[in-house]
């Protein structure tokens, strides 16, 4: 039965308010030892002060004290509740708890540091792998660019020459243009395009062919009319020398009744593109 335990508090001498001195009932006397000290502490002033208390404006003084104390209680209660609800637990923790937490954190830090080391190691490995991959990618890109320029699928820019073929008495034949292209190739030309008099341009690649067409030439099926201008990227001096050798391109064109003007350029733009061809039979051997 729960009731006896509840009623137990009544007979306990410590709990009983009427047990202490009748002059001042001790409100907070439950523990015997504490009651002794309390009664000793309070009996002294009580004896001396009992007549004074009757005389003094008891209501104002005592009630003011009680009011102040209770206001203080409410204040601290709220403050404590607030600080408890808002604080992280650390601020209220005791020293030994803090030491334990600190050692826990130290152990955790050690573990995490080892994790960091492992991760950094793997990062290094991955980085070196990535660097190798990046280098391979750069190399492949560079090769692709070179091959693109050679195959005519990429625009190119660099120092070189512009070679103009101007017909004077006879139109320029396709064989003369082909001679010039071969001569330029032999002199180390890296990218070439040929422009006709109407401004149409054709990239000159390995498979480009030149045919005589009526009143002009056909370059890989594209019909151009004179005057022609070849823009070529390569070493200007070598190419100029190659074109000007006795019995070479310049001499033979002049002999056929034409004129060749060679102009050295710091920057030549070869912008015409040759459409890439799908290979049907050849396969790379890796």
């Amino acid at each position: 039965m729960p009731l006896p335990s509840d009623d137990e508090t009544v007979p306990l001498p410590s709990d009983d308010e009427t047990v202490p001195l009748p002059s001042d009932g001790d409100e907070t006397v439950p523990l015997p030892s504490e009651r002794e000290t309390a009664s000793v502490g309070s009996s002294g002033p009580a004896v001396v002060g009992s007549p004074v208390r009757r005389v003094l404006p008891r209501l104002t003084m005592a009630n003011a004290m009680i009011a102040v104390l209770l206001a203080l209680l409410g204040f601290t209660l709220v403050v404590q509740l607030k600080s408890n609800s808002t604080d992280a637990s650390l601020e209220n923790a005791r020293q030994e708890d803090l030491v334990r937490i600190l050692s826990d954190l130290d152990a955790q830090k050690e573990r995490v540091r080892q994790d960091i080391e492992g991760l950094e190691e793997s990062q290094r490995q991955l980085n070196s792998g990535a660097q190798g991959r990046q280098a391979a990618l750069d190399e492949a890109t560079r090769r692709a660019d070179e091959l693109g320029i050679l195959a005519g699928t990429l625009a190119a820019r660099g120092p070189g020459l512009t070679v103009s073929f101007m017909p004077v008495s006879n139109p320029i034949g396709a064989s003369r243009v082909l001679d010039a292209v071969q001569e330029l190739r032999g002199a180390g030309a890296e990218a070439m395009q040929i422009a006709g008099g109407d401004g149409a341009t054709v990239r000159i690649v390995a498979s480009t062919y030149f045919l005589d067409a009526n009143g002009g030439i056909s370059v890989s099926g594209r019909r151009l009319t004179g005057p022609y201008m070849i823009m070529v990227i390569g070493d200007p001096k070598t190419m100029q020398t190659a074109l000007n050798i006795p019995g070479g391109v310049v001499a033979s064109v002049s002999g056929d009744g034409g004129n060749v003007a060679i102009q050295e350029r710091e920057v030549v733009d070869v912008t015409a593109l040759s459409p890439p061809k799908d290979l049907q039979h050849a396969r790379p051997v890796s």
Binding site: E17, T18, P22, D24, G25, D26, E27, T28, A38, G41, S42, P45, A46, G49, R53, R58, A62, N63, M65, I66, L69
Partner: peptide, 17 residues
């Protein structure tokens, strides 16, 4: 509790508090 018991004393309360 002391108030309800009718033995409340101001001074006692203040000092015990």
């Amino acid at each position: 509790r002391a108030k309800l018991d009718g033995i409340f004393d101001d001074k006692q309360f203040v000092i015990s508090f």
